[in-house]
């Protein structure tokens, strides 16, 4: 628990690191932070054209009983996926990048990863908002939108836990970073993001459902697209997996990170 209070004591550092990342990101651009709005919006537009006009993929009917836009169905999943992968990859990169700093000044080594998560969380919130706005425009509205912030909390715990473990092992063995790259691609297709879950065979479905990311993606679709509340089984998987990932990840990290400054 001392670790948690220590992190709290360094909240200003986390805030500053996050700010530095955001400031540096848009430093020399005219539109600045608008890019974090333009990027997802244009992505959504491209998907709409590719999947709606050229490929004519038909997604399930949305919660309001009429909307049927694959681009939105896809985007709801991508928001979660992007947040997850950016947090994990960002944690690995953040620890490695702050090596020079950790060697010279003491601060809790989890700070850079947390700061990075905050910047990508901001992006996830922007994307979620864009999605909500489009959905409202299409008349697909419901109280299930409130599920999205709750979902972000669980995804945060899950990906931070995972990211911390991987980041500290990556300091010792650089292979971890490369393996994560491959594994992420695999996981992307093992998660029903570009396809609806019910097109896979029944037996495969059962396995895929156990993947926490499947549940995260489904929650996001439930919130914005299907407008329904997730079931008990799904909730159990989400809560247990994210809390477990966080607790184990944090613990491993705090043990391993003690000597991390010497290795960086």
């Amino acid at each position: 628990m001392t670790a948690a209070t220590e992190i709290w004591g360094y909240r200003n550092l986390i805030y500053n690191l996050a700010q530095r990342e955001l400031r540096a990101r848009y430093k020399k651009s005219l539109l600045g932070w608008l890019w974090s709005l333009i990027n997802p919006a244009s992505m959504l537009a491209i998907y709409s054209v590719v999947f709606g006009v050229f490929l004519k993929v038909t997604p399930p009917v949305a919660g309001n009983g009429e909307t049927q836009v694959f681009a939105l169905y896809l985007f709801a999943g991508l928001v979660v996926w992007n947040y997850f992968s950016a947090t994990v990859n960002g944690a690995i990169a953040a620890l490695q990048a702050s090596g020079g700093l950790l060697n010279k000044v003491y601060f809790p080594p989890a700070c850079p990863a947390i700061a990075n998560m905050i910047t990508v969380l901001l992006q996830a919130v922007i994307e979620g908002t864009i999605l909500a706005v489009v959905m409202i425009a299409l008349g697909n509205v419901g109280p299930t939108y409130l599920l999205f912030p709750v979902l972000l909390v669980f995804v945060s715990l899950f990906s931070l836990g995972l990211g911390l473990v991987l980041s500290v092992y990556n300091v010792y063995y650089r292979d971890v970073g490369y393996l994560v790259g491959i594994f992420m691609q695999l996981l992307f297709y093992a998660t029903p993001i570009v396809y609806p879950l019910d097109i896979v065979p029944e037996t495969a479905q059962r396995v895929i459902r156990l993947n926490p990311l499947t549940q995260f993606v489904e929650w996001s679709r439930d919130a914005f697209y299907n407008l329904r509340w997730p079931g008990a089984g799904s909730t159990l998987i989400v809560v247990v997996s994210s809390v477990a990932a966080f607790v184990v990840g944090w613990w491993v990290f705090s043990v391993k990170a003690r000597t991390v400054a010497e290795e960086l």
Binding site: G9, Y10, N12, L13, Y15, N16, L17, Q19, R20, R23, A24, K27, K28, G100, L101, K104, V105, F107
Partner: peptide, 23 residues
């Protein structure tokens, strides 16, 4: 240590002070 080249001196003061544990 911890200065970010793209940030201004002012921004870096805040950042560096935060690294050193200041609110």
């Amino acid at each position: 240590a911890g200065f970010h080249p793209d940030l201004t001196g002012r921004e870096n003061i805040y950042l560096n002070a935060a690294i050193l544990g200041l609110s």
